[in-house]
Structures are given as C-alpha cells and as structure tokens.
Amino acid sequence: MPKQLALGLTLPESTNLDSYLPAANQQAVSDLSTCAAGTGEPFIYLWGATQTGKSHLLQAATQLADQAGRSALYIPLDQATQLSPAIFDDLEQMDIICLDDIEQIAGQPDWETGVFNLFNRLREQGKSLLVTAHCGPLNLPIALADLRSRLSWGLCYQLQPLDDNDKIAALTAAAARRGLTLSEETARYILRHTQRDMGSLRRLLKQLDHASLEAKRALTIPFIKAFLNRQTDG
C-alpha cells in the first residue's frame, strides 16, 4: 500500500529505489537505504539541480522505511503555504522524517525555528531525518545560524545528473517494467527529438505505452516519429 503523506496525498507505488538509476549517486542511494532501514547514518542531506531525483529518493526512503516496519513521513515543503510549522509537533515519535525542498522555508523565522527544534528532538530520540535542497547547507539562505549549522551535520551528498548513456539505460529499464521493448537506437532517437530531462522522458514513455497498446504497435522509431509529429501538430 502507498504510504500516506501530509496533506492527504499518497506516494505513488512506482516511486521506489528499483525505478531510480543510481549511476554516479550509488553511495548516496546506499546510505539512504540503510538510513531508511534504521541501520545507517540518522541524518542525510541531499542536494542538487532539478531533475536529479531528490524527491524520488525521499519518497522511496519513506516507502523503504514503511516496508521495514518503521513509521515514516514525507513532507513536501514546496507546499508550506498550505501548512503550518505546527505540523512538526510530536514528529519525534516517528522513526524517520523526510523534508523535501527545505529552501522553501528559508527566511521564515517560525518555520526555521520549527525545523531546528524538530532536528534536536529527533536527535535526542535517536530518530532519522532526511533533507533535500537545491544547494549545499552552507549556501542555504537560512537566517537561523544554528539551523544552518545543524544541516551541516551527518552525511551530505550532491546528486549528479544522468548523462546520455545513463538516460538510455533508465529509459530502457522503465520500458521493461512496463512490459515494453525499447532498443538502444530507439532510446537515442527519443533523446535527440524530445525534452531530455528524466521527468519529461518518463511522462513521454507513459504516453507511448498507452499509444502503442491502443495501436497494437511496437515502440519503433517510425511509430515514435509519427506519435511525436501528431503531438506537435495537435
């Protein structure tokens, strides 16, 4: 079952470590896994550019913890305007808390204080905290110096984007999970003619899956070319 989120959202079951290609991020993924299981470093800070899989990894860690029988909560701080810092109250009763996009609360004293106090309570209780951001902890525009210092504790990883060969491997693996066959040549064609970020590529693959099923066609270059032309004409 998908893990319940703050705001009544749910984690998609496909957001797991099996659907994440580590590539140059193998050590970060390994340490994230042991943290989620409760056997590794209790605090991990992940940062990187858009489309490096930060949210994917936090959501996967939440599900891993759940599967290990640990209580876990994923909080997307890009939705902070719909929340209150009171959401942090008593969260030290959970085994692991995942805070996504912490830069979203930077410069907001009540939120910064809330995260600072949560960090301390989790540490006192021997619980785990995973945090993501778009930059390293020392470069965050956090006004509360003690919080910026706390965020520098534990393990810190800059997630590296996938290169073209990694993206081809990720595409073919994602296609295989859908029961589709995608050749390397066809995957390279997709990379040359569409948006290249993994989010867009996964959405395109989902569309191609539906279109190929409806047309009863394999994912060949002519089929994909015709599909993309229809999308452009539409």
Rank of each mutant, 00 (worst) to 15 (best):
T220R: 09
A106L: 07
S33N: 05
L213I: 05
A72G: 05
A61N: 06
P137M: 09
G38L: 08
L205T: 02
R230D: 14
A173G: 14
C156V: 13
G199V: 04
Q158L: 15
D18W: 02
A145M: 01
L159H: 08
G8T: 12
W111A: 11
Q231E: 13
L208Y: 03
R202Y: 10
E124F: 09
D110N: 04
N117M: 10
E103M: 07
S128T: 09
S200P: 03
H134E: 01
K167P: 01
L219Y: 06
W153C: 04
L17D: 10
V115Q: 03
A72P: 07
H56F: 13
I96T: 02
R196V: 06
V115I: 13
A175S: 04
L58G: 07
N16E: 00
L11Q: 02
F88L: 15
D164Y: 10
P109E: 09
E185P: 03
L5K: 08
N16C: 15
P222E: 05
L228P: 01
C156G: 06
C135P: 00
G154F: 01
L180R: 15
D90P: 00
D209L: 09
A215Q: 14
Q27S: 11
E184N: 13
I97P: 05
I102F: 13
F227L: 03
K216D: 11
R192T: 11
A176V: 00
P109C: 04
A143M: 11
D209K: 11
M94V: 06
L151I: 00
H210S: 13
L73K: 08
N139R: 14
L11H: 03
R150T: 01
I87C: 04
V131P: 00
V115D: 09
M198E: 04
L201A: 07
N229V: 08
R202K: 09
I142E: 06
T50E: 14
